[in-house]
Amino acid sequence: MTTELKQKEEVKPELTSAEHPATKYLREERLPHIWCSGCGLGSAVTSLTNAYEKLEIPIDDIGVVSGIGCTGRAAGYFETDSYHTTHGRAIPFATGLKLSNPEMNVTVFSGDGDLFAIGGNHFIHAARRNVDMTVICVNNYNFGMTGGQFGPTTPQGATATTSPYGNYEDPFNLPDLAASAGAIYVARWTSVHARRIQQAMEEALSKRGFSFVEILSPCPTGYGRKNDLGEGIDELKSYQDRTVIKHGSDPGDAEIERDPEAEIVVGKFVEDDRPTYCDVADDYLQGQ
C-alpha cells in the first residue's frame, strides 16, 4: 500500500502549451467561449470537429452557417468558412452557399429557436427540396440568450420567463417535423451520448441530401433553473435515465414531455435516399 501511494505521488504533470484537438478547426484567439458552465454546446462543437476529422474533410471545403442565439455563436468560433446570419436565415444562406459552390460541405449549426421559430418555414422548404446540407439543431427548449423565453420546443407545462404559469402550447416534435417534411436522415441524441452524436454527425455529413441531427442539450441557466432541473450535470444524469434508444421507430412517438420521469426516445429515425435539389435541377434543365 505504501509503495503504491509513493508511486502515485511520483506522477507529476509537465506544463506545456498544447491545445485541445478540436481547436484545429476553431479560432483559438476567441476561446474560451461565452457559453455557460454546464451548457452542452461545447461538446456538440467537439463532436462536429471530430466528425470532420474522422471523415478527413479538408478545412477549406467546410462551410458552417448559424443564425442567432447561443448556438448561433458557434459559427464565430469555427475557423472554417463560416457565416453568422440574421435571425432564422441560416438555412437560406446555406442553400445559397451550396448552390454557388456544390463541392462545399455545408453544415448549419443552430438552435431550436432560430431554426424552428423564425426560421421554421425555411427548414421545411429546404427539407422538401432536399438541399444537400447537414442541419444540426441544438435543442435547449427555450430562447436561452435573450433570457429564457418559451419557444416552439418548450414542453407543455414548463415554466419560462414568458410563461410564468406554465406553457400551455403544444411543442414541435422536431424529428417528426423533419421526417414529414422530407429529410433523408433524421437522428436525435442528447448531450450525454457524445460518441453517438459524433457517429450521427459522421453519417449525416456523408449523406447526400438534407440530413437533420437534433441534440437535446442542458440549459442550466435558462430552462433548467426555472424548471428545478438542477445544474447541467443533473440534467445529463436525467437524460441518462430517461432516454430509450429506438432506431428506426416512428418519429411521431418521439414527443418530449415536461415530466422529468417521462421517457425520451432517441436514435436514428430515418435513413433514406432521394435525388437532391441540385441533381433534380441539373437533370430537368438539361432536358429543356
Binding site: P13, L15, T16, A18, E231, G232
Partner: peptide, 24 residues
C-alpha cells in the same frame, strides 16, 4: 498553461484556465 499527465498509454492534458467546473 496546460498540464500534461503521463498515463499508461499516453498522456492526459488539463487546461485549467478554460475549465468552468461543470463536472462532466
Amino acid at each position: 498553461t496546460t498540464e500534461k499527465w503521463p498515463t499508461d498509454q499516453g498522456y492526459l492534458y488539463i487546461r485549467e484556465d478554460y475549465c468552468k467546473g461543470c463536472g462532466y
